[in-house]
Simulated scan of single mutants.
Amino acid sequence: MAGKGTPATALLTKRKVPHAVHTYEHDPGESSYGSEAAAALGIAEERVFKTLVAEVDGKLTVGVVPVTGQLNLKALASAVGGKKAKMADADAATRATGYVLGGISPLGQRTRLPVVVDESVRRFDTVFCSGGRRGLEIELAPDDLVSLTGATVASIAG
C-alpha cells in the first residue's frame, strides 16, 4: 500500500502543495471509513473530512464534511444555487470520481465536479481527507483543500 500514488497525491505533488500522507491498515469489515481513519491515526474525528457525492438538480456535486456530522442536502443545494439534492448513486459517484466508495478524495477526481466544503474546515491548521483509497489519508491546510478543489465554503454539515 505505501508508496503507491493516487491522482490525489499526484496533484498535490505536481502543484507543490505542502501535505503529509498517512496510511493505516483498513479493516474490510469497517464501513465508517472516516472514524476508522481518525482512530487508526490517533486524531480527533472533527479534523477528518469525508467526501460525499450528491445530485443537485440532476448534476453531481461533492460535499466535504467532518466525519462527526452528516451532509445537509438542502444546504448543499443552496450553496451551489440549486433547489433539490439527493445522495448520488454509488456507481455514478465511482464513475465520475474514479475512486471507490470509502476512498473518494475531493482531490484529483476523474471528472471535475463542483465542490462545497463545510465551513468548520477553517477551525483547524490542517485537516485530513481521503487520499484516493481506503487506508490512505492526506493531511493539508484547509485553504489548500479549498483552492485545489475550487470549492465553495458553506455551512453544509448537519
Rank of each mutant, 00 (worst) to 15 (best):
G98D: 05
K74H: 02
I104N: 01
A88T: 08
R123D: 00
Q109G: 13
K86A: 14
A75F: 04
G82E: 03
V153R: 13
A39D: 07
F128Q: 12
L76N: 04
V64H: 02
V48C: 15
H26P: 06
G34V: 01
R15E: 13
A90C: 04
A20S: 15
L145W: 11
A54M: 03
V65F: 02
A92E: 10
A54C: 06
D118T: 11
E46M: 02
A10Y: 12
P18F: 09
H26E: 10
A44N: 14
M87K: 07
D57Y: 04
H19G: 00
G108Q: 01
K4I: 14
A2E: 09
K74A: 05
T68N: 09
S130I: 07
G150E: 11
K16Y: 12
S147A: 09
A2S: 08
V116A: 10
L60R: 15
A2K: 08
D118W: 08
L11M: 15
L52T: 02
L101T: 06
G102Q: 06
G135N: 10
G63Y: 12
A44Q: 14
I156D: 11
F128W: 14
G82F: 04
S78V: 00
E30M: 03
T152G: 11
R133N: 09
E36F: 04
R133S: 08
G102W: 05
A157Q: 09
R110P: 13
G81D: 05
A38Y: 10
D144H: 11
K50P: 01
E36I: 04
G5H: 09
K16T: 13
D91V: 08
A90E: 12
K50M: 03
A157M: 07
A93D: 06
E36G: 10
K84C: 01
Y24V: 14
L145G: 04
L113R: 07
S105E: 06
Q70P: 05
V53E: 08
P114N: 14
V116N: 11
E119G: 12
K83E: 13
G63V: 15
L73A: 06
K86F: 05
R15K: 10
G3M: 14
T152D: 10
E45F: 00
G69W: 06
A88S: 15
T126K: 04
A151N: 10
L73C: 01
G132N: 04
D143I: 13
A141M: 11
K50E: 02
A157L: 10
G29I: 07
D91K: 08
A39T: 02
G81F: 03
A88V: 07
N72C: 10
V64D: 01
V21W: 15
S105A: 03
Y24N: 02
I104F: 01
D143C: 12
A77Y: 00
A54D: 02
M1S: 02
G98Y: 02
A157P: 03
F128L: 15
L41K: 13
M87L: 15
A40K: 14
M87Q: 09
A38H: 09
L101I: 12
A85L: 06
G135R: 11
